[in-house]
Design a binder for these strands. Structure first.
Lengths: 217, 217
DNA sequence: TGTACATCAGTGAACGCGCGTTCACTGATGTAC
DNA sequence: TGTACATCAGTGAACGCGCGTTCACTGATGTAC
């Protein structure tokens, strides 16, 4: 009784010691991104949701940009995790060539699943850089396995070469082609002009895009 | 001397009769989109650039959304025009099959050229619909030839079927696959994470994406 | 075990900004006689 | 050809909003004695 309760989060909190507020603001920022995309990520609304004065955020984030970058990094971690989950579902009895092809498909499928499940976070992950922080080297964007989305894609495409499915001469930049196809579908359907007509058949078109990539690479 | 001068636009204007201000506001809106994308399109800044009071805009646009939609429509006209230009450059002595393939490539090339030449307008053309006006049926989005970008793409893909390059069974939705690949590359390079590494080789990757589409469709 | 103290996370108030939008108006324009 | 008039495009002032950010502060916390 003399110590603060670890559960009962919303009502039992009296003050945010040891980084709890940073976590709360990040969670609020992610909720905002989910609801309204990157433009909805606002220091004032995040502090409002955390039940805290607006300027309290400056103890944990240098600016609104810093919060946005943190939310973006978390969104990219989500993309990586979704890819890893799809990779983990792969059957283990495949030939090297089939495993390579299935890996590329799994990476794409994980990407598209995340875009569909979390459109607001997806948009945030790949939002325009606003002429600002291009590299953002500090924030980690890797999933549980320690690889970020781009690395996971490159790994899968590398398998195509290692297993003899793709000639090594065609390897350089091949991941860009695969990424473009999958990313374009996601953008057009998630918040673009194809939301209404294609949205209901998103998974189907996802597989067709992956067919095209597999044949076209 | 007793009539107003038709040239000397900026200083000689005294008042905007007969729709000149609408044109000036639209031009200002397009300039803003060019410089900062859809978020930069602001009634106040557009009126400022037109040298007019902020509320004067309401004689020509019902709201800021209406201006944004008009700029978006103009941007889509630009996309259509760029596609038409690429189509017009096609050699005329091709076989039906080659002409069909070349038409699909031309449509994609025109799309990518516009994205590269006018990134801000491109982003505006395909910006998120903001949960609002999905259809926007009033504003014309067609190019000089009377077809909008989507129709131009469908026409080209139809040629693939008509010339026997593509089986009719694969036609439904095929334009979505082609659009996705080209759109994804444009988004990733124009204002996404690939701007720095791929930007200098945009045209090269554009052709590689089109190779993939051609083989993969 | 108890007390004094330094730390620093969160407070309260305020700033300046640019935005969209509304109101009653005015004065140049084109038209009717 | 000249004059009176109605129209309506653009004006001037103002509103409320939410935002990011800064300032001096306060009071609960953990620590040192």
């Amino acid at each position: 009784m003399q110590t603060t309760l670890p559960s009962d989060s919303p009502p039992a909190r009296k003050t945010y010691r040891q980084g709890d507020l940073r976590r709360a603001l990040l969670d609020a920022g992610m909720a905002l991104a989910r609801e309204g995309g990157p433009a909805a990520i606002t220091l004032r609304e995040a502090t409002r949701r955390a039940g805290v004065a607006p300027n309290a955020a400056y103890r944990h984030f240098a600016s609104q940009q810093a919060l946005l970058q943190s939310v973006r990094a978390a969104a990219l971690q989500g993309v990586a995790e979704s890819m890893e989950n799809a990779l983990a579902d792969l059957p283990t009895n495949l030939s090297a060539a089939d495993h390579a092809r299935a890996s590329v498909r799994a990476v794409g499928t994980g990407y598209l699943r995340f875009a569909q499940a979390e459109p607001g976070l997806f948009r945030t992950a790949f939002a325009v850089s606003d002429k600002l922080i291009q590299a953002t080297p500090e924030v980690p964007t890797a999933g549980p396995g320690g690889r970020n989305p781009y690395e996971l894609l490159c790994d899968a495409v590398d398998l195509l070469v290692a297993s003899g499915v793709m000639p090594a001469a065609r390897r350089p930049g091949a991941e860009i082609l695969a990424w473009s196809a999958v990313h374009g579908l996601a953008m057009l359907v998630v918040d673009g002009p194809l939301a209404a007509p294609v949205g209901p058949h998103f998974a189907l078109f996802g597989q067709r895009v992956l067919d095209m990539v597999e044949k076209g690479l």
